[in-house]
């Protein structure tokens, strides 16, 4: 379970990104967070990843108080969360295969496990034929599929996808969402932030709407309404 308890984030220039936000995300849920740019979606995600500290309030992941994680503990915590971003964030110097195996190496997995799991996950995102290509040789949709493969390969508890379809055409968008749904069906919590009305409407899952750093709607089986 993930809990945001009255979380406020005010940046040094006075911008209020989150304003007393509280919400609970149950295990195995598929939650979409929608809102205009600057509504606080990305800040929320950064807080969960312990990339930013809140000005006040608390964030829990199971029994872990995320703000109280020490420097040496953060990377262990992050290994439990798979992340997918709009700009893919792939390692440009590494091949598709190495981008995925890197995440497994970080988790301290053995070489035998890596050589068994990477082809499997590449097959899942339909990229087996691109294993030895570099990111600059891939299309946007392919890059995002690599990012998803990397995010799921360590079988994390949560997948956080921050605007994963922002740079993709409708066909690739559909593919990515289908993969995320499949991952969720296999038991992983998925947190998706998006602007895409079509995506939200087709999912028929929980939708949290944010505005000016506050949760203004929370529908169990929502549609996009802004």
């Amino acid at each position: 379970m993930i809990v945001f308890d009255k979380v406020t984030k005010i940046y040094s220039d006075g911008t209020v990104a989150l304003d007393g936000t509280s919400l609970i995300i149950e295990p195995k849920e598929f939650v979409s967070i929608v809102g205009h740019s600057g509504a606080g979606k990305t800040t929320l995600v950064k807080m969960l990843l312990s990339e930013e500290k809140p000005t006040s309030g608390k964030i829990f992941f199971e029994s872990i108080d995320v703000n109280k994680l020490k420097k040496g503990e953060i990377h262990h915590y992050r290994r439990r969360i798979g992340t997918v971003f709009q700009d893919f964030k792939l390692l440009s110097n590494k091949t598709v295969y190495e981008n995925i195996s890197f995440a497994m190496e970080m988790a301290g997995r053995y070489d035998e496990e890596i050589s068994a799991d990477v082809p499997h996950v590449l097959d899942l995102v339909n990229l087996s034929n691109k294993a030895y290509n570099f990111p600059h040789e891939l299309s946007g949709g392919e890059k995002q599929r690599v990012a998803i493969a990397r995010a799921i390969v360590n079988q994390p508890d949560i997948i956080v996808a921050d605007e994963p379809t922002g740079n993709l055409d409708p066909i690739n968008t559909h593919e990515i969402i289908q993969i995320l749904k499949k991952v969720n069906d296999l038991g992983t919590t998925v947190i998706l932030t998006t602007h895409n009305k079509g995506v939200i409407d087709s999912l028929g899952k929980r939708v949290i709407t944010m505005e000016k750093g506050k949760v203004v709607r929370d529908d169990k089986s929502g549609r996009y309404s802004m």
């Binding site: 992050r78 290994r79 992340t83 964030k89 890197f102 995440a103 988790a107």
Partner: peptide, 15 residues
């Protein structure tokens, strides 16, 4: 940027 990606994927400082 690569460094921040490594961190996000869960790489320790030493790594």
């Amino acid at each position: 940027d690569e460094i921040s990606v490594m961190r996000l994927v869960g790489a320790s400082s030493e790594y």
